[in-house]
Computed example of a mutant assay.
Amino acid sequence: MPRPLPHRLLAEYLGSLLLAALVIGSGIAAQRLSPGDVGLQLLENAAATAVGLYAIILVFGPVSGGHFNPVVSVVDAVFRGLPWRDVPSYALAQVLGCVSGAVLANVMFDAAPVGISTTERATAAHGVSEVVATTGLLLVIFSLVRSGRAALAPAAVGAYVGAAYFFTSSTSFANPALTAGRVFSDTFAGIAPSSVPVFVLAQVVAIAVAVPLLRALHPLQPTTEAPAAPVTEGQVR
Protein backbone atom coordinates (compact mmCIF):
# COMPACT_ATOMS: atom_id res chain seq x y z
CA MET A 1 0.00 0.00 0.00
CA PRO A 2 1.54 3.36 -0.97
CA ARG A 3 2.40 5.75 1.83
CA PRO A 4 0.29 8.95 2.10
CA LEU A 5 1.41 11.63 -0.34
CA PRO A 6 2.62 14.07 2.37
CA HIS A 7 4.93 11.35 3.73
CA ARG A 8 6.28 10.62 0.28
CA LEU A 9 6.83 14.29 -0.50
CA LEU A 10 8.71 14.77 2.77
CA ALA A 11 10.95 11.82 1.86
CA GLU A 12 11.56 13.26 -1.63
CA TYR A 13 12.36 16.68 -0.19
CA LEU A 14 14.76 15.35 2.44
CA GLY A 15 16.41 12.90 0.06
CA SER A 16 16.89 15.62 -2.57
CA LEU A 17 18.25 17.99 0.08
CA LEU A 18 20.81 15.42 1.21
CA LEU A 19 21.69 14.55 -2.38
CA ALA A 20 22.47 18.18 -3.23
CA ALA A 21 24.34 18.69 0.04
CA LEU A 22 26.32 15.53 -0.68
CA VAL A 23 27.27 16.47 -4.24
CA ILE A 24 28.07 20.12 -3.53
CA GLY A 25 29.58 19.60 -0.08
CA SER A 26 31.92 16.86 -1.24
CA GLY A 27 32.87 19.07 -4.19
CA ILE A 28 33.79 21.93 -1.87
CA ALA A 29 35.72 19.59 0.43
CA ALA A 30 37.59 18.07 -2.52
CA GLN A 31 38.53 21.51 -3.82
CA ARG A 32 39.94 22.48 -0.43
CA LEU A 33 41.63 19.17 0.33
CA SER A 34 43.31 18.83 -3.08
CA PRO A 35 43.95 22.33 -4.41
CA GLY A 36 45.38 22.43 -7.90
CA ASP A 37 44.60 18.78 -8.70
CA VAL A 38 41.30 18.71 -10.60
CA GLY A 39 41.53 14.99 -11.32
CA LEU A 40 41.84 14.14 -7.64
CA GLN A 41 39.06 16.58 -6.79
CA LEU A 42 36.74 14.86 -9.24
CA LEU A 43 37.66 11.43 -7.87
CA GLU A 44 36.91 12.52 -4.31
CA ASN A 45 33.63 14.13 -5.37
CA ALA A 46 32.58 11.04 -7.36
CA ALA A 47 33.46 8.55 -4.63
CA ALA A 48 31.59 10.48 -1.94
CA THR A 49 28.56 10.87 -4.19
CA ALA A 50 28.45 7.20 -5.15
CA VAL A 51 28.52 5.81 -1.63
CA GLY A 52 26.40 8.58 -0.14
CA LEU A 53 23.69 8.16 -2.75
CA TYR A 54 23.54 4.43 -2.00
CA ALA A 55 22.83 5.22 1.66
CA ILE A 56 20.28 7.94 0.90
CA ILE A 57 18.30 5.63 -1.38
CA LEU A 58 18.23 2.95 1.33
CA VAL A 59 16.81 5.46 3.83
CA PHE A 60 14.10 7.08 1.71
CA GLY A 61 13.39 4.50 -1.00
CA PRO A 62 10.88 2.50 1.08
CA VAL A 63 8.84 5.68 1.70
CA SER A 64 8.70 7.44 -1.68
CA GLY A 65 10.59 5.24 -4.12
CA GLY A 66 13.71 7.33 -3.68
CA HIS A 67 13.45 9.23 -6.96
CA PHE A 68 15.03 12.61 -6.05
CA ASN A 69 14.86 13.36 -9.77
CA PRO A 70 11.94 14.57 -11.96
CA VAL A 71 12.94 12.45 -14.96
CA VAL A 72 12.81 9.33 -12.79
CA SER A 73 9.36 10.33 -11.53
CA VAL A 74 8.11 10.90 -15.09
CA VAL A 75 9.37 7.54 -16.33
CA ASP A 76 7.94 5.80 -13.26
CA ALA A 77 4.57 7.34 -14.17
CA VAL A 78 4.95 6.20 -17.80
CA PHE A 79 5.30 2.63 -16.52
CA ARG A 80 2.30 3.06 -14.20
CA GLY A 81 4.19 3.09 -10.94
CA LEU A 82 3.77 6.68 -9.71
CA PRO A 83 0.32 8.20 -10.46
CA TRP A 84 0.60 11.04 -12.97
CA ARG A 85 -1.26 13.35 -10.57
CA ASP A 86 1.66 13.01 -8.10
CA VAL A 87 4.41 13.89 -10.60
CA PRO A 88 4.17 17.71 -10.24
CA SER A 89 4.26 17.46 -6.45
CA TYR A 90 7.25 15.12 -6.57
CA ALA A 91 9.08 17.46 -8.97
CA LEU A 92 8.41 20.51 -6.79
CA ALA A 93 9.62 18.69 -3.65
CA GLN A 94 12.75 17.57 -5.52
CA VAL A 95 13.61 21.06 -6.77
CA LEU A 96 13.00 22.68 -3.39
CA GLY A 97 15.05 19.96 -1.72
CA CYS A 98 18.00 20.42 -4.06
CA VAL A 99 17.99 24.19 -3.64
CA SER A 100 17.84 23.77 0.14
CA GLY A 101 20.68 21.26 -0.02
CA ALA A 102 22.84 23.71 -1.97
CA VAL A 103 22.26 26.39 0.66
CA LEU A 104 23.03 23.90 3.43
CA ALA A 105 26.30 22.84 1.76
CA ASN A 106 27.37 26.47 1.43
CA VAL A 107 26.64 27.12 5.10
CA MET A 108 28.44 23.97 6.27
CA PHE A 109 31.60 25.16 4.56
CA ASP A 110 31.33 28.75 5.82
CA ALA A 111 30.48 30.21 2.42
CA ALA A 112 27.69 32.65 1.61
CA PRO A 113 24.38 30.77 1.96
CA VAL A 114 23.48 31.63 -1.64
CA GLY A 115 26.15 32.12 -4.27
CA ILE A 116 25.07 32.05 -7.91
CA SER A 117 27.46 29.88 -9.90
CA THR A 118 29.57 31.35 -12.68
CA THR A 119 30.70 27.99 -14.12
CA GLU A 120 29.61 27.87 -17.76
CA ARG A 121 28.88 24.34 -19.00
CA ALA A 122 26.64 24.86 -22.04
CA THR A 123 28.50 23.16 -24.90
CA ALA A 124 27.38 20.64 -27.49
CA ALA A 125 29.58 17.99 -25.88
CA HIS A 126 27.98 18.60 -22.49
CA GLY A 127 24.51 18.36 -24.03
CA VAL A 128 25.29 15.01 -25.66
CA SER A 129 26.86 13.84 -22.40
CA GLU A 130 23.71 14.67 -20.47
CA VAL A 131 21.54 12.72 -22.89
CA VAL A 132 23.86 9.72 -22.52
CA ALA A 133 24.21 10.05 -18.75
CA THR A 134 20.48 10.44 -18.10
CA THR A 135 19.52 7.67 -20.51
CA GLY A 136 22.00 5.37 -18.81
CA LEU A 137 20.65 6.23 -15.37
CA LEU A 138 17.09 5.46 -16.46
CA LEU A 139 18.18 2.18 -18.05
CA VAL A 140 19.95 1.12 -14.86
CA ILE A 141 16.97 1.90 -12.64
CA PHE A 142 14.10 0.62 -14.74
CA SER A 143 15.88 -2.41 -16.18
CA LEU A 144 16.23 -3.63 -12.61
CA VAL A 145 12.66 -2.72 -11.67
CA ARG A 146 11.12 -4.28 -14.77
CA SER A 147 13.12 -7.49 -14.39
CA GLY A 148 12.24 -8.00 -10.73
CA ARG A 149 15.60 -6.93 -9.31
CA ALA A 150 14.66 -3.58 -7.75
CA ALA A 151 16.48 -4.49 -4.51
CA LEU A 152 19.77 -4.10 -6.39
CA ALA A 153 18.97 -0.57 -7.51
CA PRO A 154 20.58 1.41 -4.64
CA ALA A 155 23.99 -0.18 -5.20
CA ALA A 156 23.66 -0.14 -8.99
CA VAL A 157 22.66 3.53 -9.09
CA GLY A 158 25.53 4.52 -6.81
CA ALA A 159 27.99 2.58 -8.95
CA TYR A 160 26.67 4.05 -12.20
CA VAL A 161 26.71 7.62 -10.90
CA GLY A 162 30.28 7.25 -9.65
CA ALA A 163 31.40 5.93 -13.03
CA ALA A 164 29.45 8.54 -14.99
CA TYR A 165 31.42 11.35 -13.35
CA PHE A 166 34.34 10.16 -15.47
CA PHE A 167 32.92 8.84 -18.74
CA THR A 168 30.85 11.96 -19.52
CA SER A 169 32.29 15.42 -20.14
CA SER A 170 29.42 16.99 -18.19
CA THR A 171 30.22 14.84 -15.10
CA SER A 172 26.67 13.46 -15.36
CA PHE A 173 24.21 15.81 -13.68
CA ALA A 174 21.35 13.67 -15.12
CA ASN A 175 18.77 15.40 -12.91
CA PRO A 176 16.84 18.65 -13.59
CA ALA A 177 16.23 19.28 -9.88
CA LEU A 178 19.87 18.90 -8.97
CA THR A 179 20.87 20.99 -11.98
CA ALA A 180 18.68 23.79 -10.63
CA GLY A 181 20.04 23.39 -7.11
CA ARG A 182 23.65 23.56 -8.23
CA VAL A 183 23.04 27.05 -9.62
CA PHE A 184 22.98 28.32 -6.02
CA SER A 185 26.54 27.36 -5.14
CA ASP A 186 29.44 29.11 -6.85
CA THR A 187 31.79 26.23 -6.12
CA PHE A 188 33.40 23.19 -7.76
CA ALA A 189 30.02 21.54 -8.43
CA GLY A 190 28.12 24.63 -9.57
CA ILE A 191 26.55 25.47 -12.90
CA ALA A 192 25.82 28.94 -14.28
CA PRO A 193 22.12 29.78 -14.80
CA SER A 194 22.74 30.31 -18.53
CA SER A 195 23.86 26.66 -18.86
CA VAL A 196 20.79 25.18 -17.17
CA PRO A 197 18.45 25.12 -20.22
CA VAL A 198 20.91 23.02 -22.25
CA PHE A 199 21.27 20.50 -19.43
CA VAL A 200 17.55 20.25 -18.67
CA LEU A 201 16.63 19.90 -22.34
CA ALA A 202 19.16 17.09 -22.73
CA GLN A 203 17.78 15.36 -19.63
CA VAL A 204 14.24 15.56 -20.99
CA VAL A 205 15.37 14.21 -24.38
CA ALA A 206 16.79 11.22 -22.51
CA ILE A 207 13.26 10.27 -21.43
CA ALA A 208 12.25 9.93 -25.08
CA VAL A 209 15.32 7.77 -25.71
CA ALA A 210 15.11 5.58 -22.62
CA VAL A 211 11.41 4.66 -22.59
CA PRO A 212 11.34 2.89 -26.00
CA LEU A 213 14.61 1.14 -25.17
CA LEU A 214 13.21 -0.11 -21.88
CA ARG A 215 10.03 -1.34 -23.55
CA ALA A 216 12.10 -3.22 -26.12
CA LEU A 217 14.59 -4.66 -23.64
CA HIS A 218 12.19 -5.46 -20.80
CA PRO A 219 8.63 -5.89 -22.12
CA LEU A 220 6.01 -6.98 -19.65
CA GLN A 221 3.24 -9.42 -20.60
CA PRO A 222 -0.22 -7.80 -20.31
CA THR A 223 -1.51 -10.69 -18.21
CA THR A 224 1.26 -10.40 -15.63
CA GLU A 225 2.03 -6.70 -15.71
CA ALA A 226 1.80 -5.01 -12.35
CA PRO A 227 2.55 -1.48 -11.17
CA ALA A 228 6.25 -0.86 -11.03
CA ALA A 229 7.98 -1.37 -7.72
CA PRO A 230 9.36 1.69 -5.98
CA VAL A 231 12.34 2.95 -7.88
CA THR A 232 15.41 4.84 -6.92
CA GLU A 233 17.14 7.95 -8.24
CA GLY A 234 19.81 8.02 -8.87
CA GLN A 235 20.52 10.71 -9.86
CA VAL A 236 22.90 11.69 -10.49
CA ARG A 237 23.58 14.10 -9.33
Rank of each mutant, 00 (worst) to 15 (best):
11 A>I: 03
53 L>S: 05
216 A>C: 13
157 V>L: 01
191 I>N: 00
112 A>I: 09
223 T>K: 15
132 V>N: 12
190 G>E: 01
61 G>D: 01
230 P>H: 10
178 L>Q: 12
168 T>W: 05
40 L>P: 08
15 G>P: 01
78 V>Y: 15
25 G>C: 12
152 L>C: 07
115 G>R: 12
158 G>N: 06
222 P>T: 12
61 G>F: 00
185 S>N: 11
218 H>V: 14
62 P>Y: 10
186 D>Y: 01
37 D>R: 09
227 P>K: 04
154 P>G: 01
78 V>H: 14
235 Q>S: 15
61 G>A: 05
160 Y>L: 06
20 A>S: 09
180 A>I: 15
160 Y>G: 01
223 T>E: 15
193 P>G: 03
165 Y>G: 03
159 A>F: 13
126 H>I: 10
82 L>S: 04
8 R>I: 01
188 F>C: 02
14 L>A: 04
17 L>M: 06
193 P>R: 02
45 N>P: 07
98 C>R: 09
221 Q>T: 14
126 H>C: 12
216 A>M: 13
94 Q>L: 06
86 D>F: 09
52 G>L: 07
20 A>L: 10
60 F>V: 07
61 G>L: 01
49 T>R: 03
208 A>L: 12
231 V>C: 12
164 A>F: 07
36 G>L: 08
59 V>G: 09
170 S>E: 09
98 C>W: 07
11 A>N: 02
136 G>M: 06
10 L>H: 02
128 V>G: 13
21 A>G: 09
73 S>W: 04
15 G>S: 01
7 H>V: 14
107 V>Q: 11
190 G>D: 03
68 F>D: 03
224 T>C: 05
199 F>G: 06
155 A>W: 00
14 L>Y: 07
57 I>V: 11
50 A>F: 05
92 L>V: 14
107 V>L: 15
196 V>H: 02
85 R>T: 12
196 V>E: 05
216 A>H: 15
224 T>W: 08
132 V>Q: 06
100 S>G: 14
114 V>K: 09
71 V>A: 13
205 V>R: 10
210 A>Y: 05
147 S>Q: 13
173 F>T: 13
20 A>T: 02
106 N>V: 07
141 I>M: 08
232 T>A: 01
232 T>S: 00
59 V>Y: 09
102 A>Q: 12
30 A>R: 09
220 L>A: 15
143 S>C: 00
204 V>F: 11
86 D>L: 07
190 G>K: 00
220 L>Y: 14
209 V>F: 12
75 V>N: 05
223 T>I: 15
140 V>A: 00
167 F>S: 11
98 C>K: 07
218 H>M: 12
86 D>G: 08
227 P>Q: 07
166 F>N: 06
232 T>Y: 00
157 V>I: 09
179 T>Y: 07
74 V>C: 11
96 L>E: 09
3 R>Y: 15
151 A>K: 00
228 A>F: 06
208 A>G: 15
4 P>S: 04
134 T>H: 02
151 A>S: 08
62 P>I: 10
155 A>K: 00
139 L>G: 04
69 N>A: 10
